[in-house]
């Protein structure tokens, strides 16, 4: 089979478990090293946490207290006003629809992008890894080449393509006159529904699935769809989990694309809403801090639950920068 020369799939990387202790002799010198390590690491870690600690603390403070000198690390007069206003409970905060809508938008968009990408990427990856047909390598090469191209190049054409989708957003059948898929969920989701990089990663993984397994299923009369769904996908679960987490994270915190195509506040995603809030110099910092905490929570929770997959995925794919 021609697949024998294909690159190996990314090997799972074992991260920080019991490892052999390289080269530190026991005794007093060893202890000195460890103390030195703590001496550097712990203050550093505090420096890394301090902004978060302050963010969380500020989100529970009244706006007056947030400006107090010295800064209050532990709110002296804790308040939920920021959260209440942000989520539109009780009093509504100035301007626009309630901000919980931003989070629903973010959740919807990020989930859709992730599901679609996992589905389409794995379909394409399976074909590239395990099927032989004329044109396959050419198409795959095309996918690979475009991975190098920075997103800024395709930004403007994609904007124009979305703007001219026929029969949507007030457009006529020739795509003229309206705004098409700009400022819509279609526009937020569809350009991200396939990723050349994701296809590449999954394909590398799928190449290692033995052909005999698939052939056996074929001989038993399984359809290709069934083979894909019942054999290939379950075997790829670790790779799907890793790429899925990153796709979700990327979509959840994406800022550039929503900034460009979204204009109405009820379509804002969480990062876009928060960023515009700041840039427009609004002064309700308590509301903003509460929103920031809420926007950070989902990924931090996902990270804590899937820490292993997360870090392995990062090590394997080098995603996120």
């Amino acid at each position: 089979m021609s697949t024998t020369t294909a690159p190996q799939p990314p090997q799972p990387v074992e991260v920080v478990t019991a490892l052999p202790d390289p080269g530190i002799p026991p005794g007093r010198r060893r202890r000195t090293w460890l103390w030195l390590a703590y001496l550097v690491l712990v203050p550093g870690a505090l420096l890394f946490v301090a902004p978060f600690a302050w963010l969380v603390s500020a989100s529970f403070q009244r706006i007056g207290d947030m400006f107090s000198y010295p800064p209050q690390w532990i709110p002296q007069d804790p308040s939920l006003d920021g959260y209440r206003q942000f989520l539109g409970i009780g009093q509504e905060f100035a301007g626009g629809p309630q901000a919980w809508r931003w989070f629903l938008n973010s959740a919807f968009v990020a989930t859709s992008v992730t599901v679609l990408q996992l589905f389409f990427n794995s379909l394409a990856a399976y074909v590239f890894a395990k099927r032989q047909f004329p044109g396959r390598d050419l198409i795959f090469a095309l996918f690979l080449i475009t991975m190098m191209i920075p997103g800024q190049i395709t930004l403007i054409p994609n904007y124009l393509v979305l703007k001219h989708v026929p029969l949507f957003g007030g457009n006529d059948i020739f795509g003229q006159g309206g705004s098409g898929w700009l400022d819509s969920y279609y526009g937020l989701i569809l350009p991200g529904a396939v990723s050349a990089f994701g296809i590449f990663l999954l394909r590398q993984y799928m190449v290692s699935i033995p052909d005999e397994l698939l052939d056996a299923a074929r001989i038993d009369g399984a359809s290709e769809l069934r083979i894909y769904a019942r054999i290939v996908l379950p075997l790829c679960r670790p790779a799907l989990a890793a790429t899925g987490i990153f796709t979700f994270q990327g979509a959840w915190e994406d800022f550039f694309w929503p900034l460009i195509i979204v204009s109405s506040p009820d379509k804002y995603t969480a990062p876009l809403g928060l960023a515009l809030f700041v840039v427009e110099n609004r002064t309700q910092w308590d509301v903003l801090m509460a929103g920031s905490v809420i926007a950070s929570l989902p990924m931090i929770v996902v990270f804590i639950i899937f820490q292993r997959q997360f870090i392995q995925g990062i090590a394997v794919s080098g995603l996120k920068g």
Partner: peptide, 29 residues
């Protein structure tokens, strides 16, 4: 962190926290 330290997992998580935080939030803070 590659040294056999106690509490290594926690320290690693703390350094890693900014990576999983939305960049917009970091910029705001």
């Amino acid at each position: 962190l590659n040294l056999p330290l106690r509490g290594r997992g926690i320290i690693r998580t703390l350094y890693f926290l900014p990576v999983v935080t939305p960049f917009v939030v970091i910029a705001i803070v």
